[in-house]
Design a protein around this nucleic acid. Structure first.
Lengths: 338, 338
DNA sequence: CCTGGCACTCAGCGGCGCAGAGTGCCAACA
DNA sequence: TGTTGGCACTCTGCGCCGCTGAGTGCCAGG
């Protein structure tokens, strides 16, 4: 049923609809794309596409609009990823190169992505679980109060206050700091629990409690998932699709503020490949008329976090995918340099 | 011209308009508020109020709507601050008490404020300039590479990487750390430059360059204003005033994303008293139909930062002001306990 | 200074009819 | 069997019209 020309018709419908935001009819199609067939033929093809659920009519005697299924087919088989122009690439690089620290890199990335795609941008902070330890510092703020500072290879810094059950001497603390660093610097977070398990035994009994407390606090910091922060920008772009307003925009804004929802959305696709989730494919009901384009990024070849954009299902997929991929690459590069 | 009854009429107009979101007429006024006079009299008063610019008609033969000037008068002379109910107070306290660290306190505050006022909440991170130093830590990551960690009394942690012109020995670094801490811990940031000015002289000439580099980096961190981060929440509440949509909401979303704009908005009122900025009083042109209610908060009696809400000029001022003030107090309390 | 009465104004709403775009179907043709 | 032109039909969107009702301003009387 789906011969070559029908796919071509679907592609044309998607392209036109994305451009004009209006249902597209058979006549307009044959005019704008040189399909080499008459409107009548296109009408037959459209009827078939509708039969199969790739397109739909908003009302009788209106043009056709792609369905989620139609967009899916378009993304999977009909559309490539449109590479950015080289001025665009240079602008990205230049913009990101100006960043002074991790927070700044992330902040700039969000702005960049929002501007480039003219949609809502979402960037997850580099996840702890894939990172390695660069340094651990312990500071005695009071005899039984220690501050733990953890520095990761992505430049992220986590700190935490610890109240120990018993005081920990200055020399013991220095000893613990040295032992900790020699064991875990450069290691994956997932390795750390194993590596520090027997550390308390090196200390005198009356200090073991305090040492254990410090270590368990360190481990907590490592696994803490609530710290999977993300940053969102470009929400003003939501106002661009101005049809039936409050109904469309409100649930999206609400979903965007629920970090949990967004994290699950980004996390859904394992691995770092580019993922497109279209309309009803999104679990969250507020996002059933939006699509999410996301991809992993990282300092090495492995992804440490994800970034992406949220926009209407009626979006320019090739262009958006190109921008998302390009930004992810450059961010990865910047992180690697650091 | 502005006798007691006319003020009463203005108050009634504001209250009704805020409640119904529709222009209010003379008849409805006399019915809902017992003004003890006839609609005709109220009409005369309304004409006078309009003459003076406190109210306006959207079109001839429609009811009246308060102007910015009318709201101003209402806020300054007619409305008190409505205290929260005690269940509300308990809910706030309970909600904020669950916070585990500074980030969490701020995040919870934003959510709370947005829910309580049903408007957009803005919370500024405790500002560095008013804070005192709790601890400074220096870590040698490499011979000529030092990480500076600054901990403030509000629990905030700033870190920064420093590349020194020459290597700094481990003992010198420990020395510098000790001297720094003994001099500046507990001091206001503004005092620090004076206190560390002569520190390099205590070191051997070949290390003075490195020491100076570290110190100037410390001072930079202290004055860095770009770090005046703020957190925004409840943007979905913007969709509540659903009239003439894209035009209203878009510039507001854009302004909210411009940290600079929002910081200036919050910063405009010096001191920590509650400030209400109405409509065109806001410098930013995207916010001319919104009002900003803000107040300082802090761990002591002095404000370290501000928080507030952004909403339509047509907002419940007494209620909003009550919520903002209450939240600021509780946040201050939480910070002080820490 | 307040009040009731009265004429006037205007936004909002529903009904009406038209124009235009688009469809489905059919018969003819390659 | 697939393609094409023709034709009748269906609807949305838009502008027009007139009505209703809320609200006003003004005036004369208390």
């Amino acid at each position: 049923m789906l011969n070559e020309r029908r796919l071509e018709v679907l592609r044309a419908i998607v392209q036109d609809y994305v451009g004009t935001e209006e249902p597209v009819g058979s006549k307009a199609l044959t005019e704008r794309h040189n399909l080499q067939v008459s409107p009548a033929t296109v009408r037959n093809d459209m009827a078939a596409l509708e039969e199969d659920g790739y397109i739909a009519q908003p009302h009788t005697s209106a043009g056709r609009v792609p369905t989620d299924k139609g967009y899916r087919l378009f993304v999977d088989r009909l559309a490539g990823v449109k590479p950015l122009s080289s001025p665009e690439r240079r602008a990205i690089q230049h913009f990101l190169d100006g960043a002074v620290d991790l927070d700044d890199v992330i902040a700039r990335t969000v702005r960049l992505l929002a501007q480039l795609t003219r949609q809502v941008a979402v960037v997850q902070y580099p996840s702890l679980s894939r990172s390695t330890v660069r340094h651990v510092e312990l500071l005695a703020l009071a005899p039984a109060r220690v501050m733990l500072v953890l520095i990761t290879d992505t430049g992220r810094v986590e700190q935490r206050m610890i109240d120990c059950p018993a005081p920990l001497g200055e020399t013991s603390l220095a000893d613990l700091r040295a032992r900790l660093n020699s064991r875990i610097v450069g290691q994956r977070f997932s390795e750390v629990p194993r590596l520090v398990a027997e550390l308390p035994e090196a200390f005198v009994p009356e200090e073991r409690g305090a040492v254990s407390t410090v270590l368990s606090s360190l481990l907590e910091t490592l696994v803490e998932e609530t710290e999977e922060r993300l940053v969102i920008g470009g929400t003003a772009n939501l106002t661009r699709f101005a049809t039936d307003f409050p109904l469309t925009i409100r649930p999206v804004l609400e979903a965007l503020e629920e970090q949990v929802v967004m994290l699950r959305l980004l996390g859904e696709a394992r691995g770092s490949e580019m993922t497109v989730s279209i309309g009803h494919e999104n679990a969250h009901e507020g996002l059933t008329s939006t699509s999410v384009v996301s991809v992993g990024y990282g300092s090495g070849d492995e992804a440490v976090a994800k970034l992406g954009v949220v926009g209407p299902t009626r979006m320019d997929y090739p262009g958006t995918m190109g921008a998302v991929r390009a930004v992810a690459r450059y961010v990865g590069q910047i992180l690697a340099e650091n």
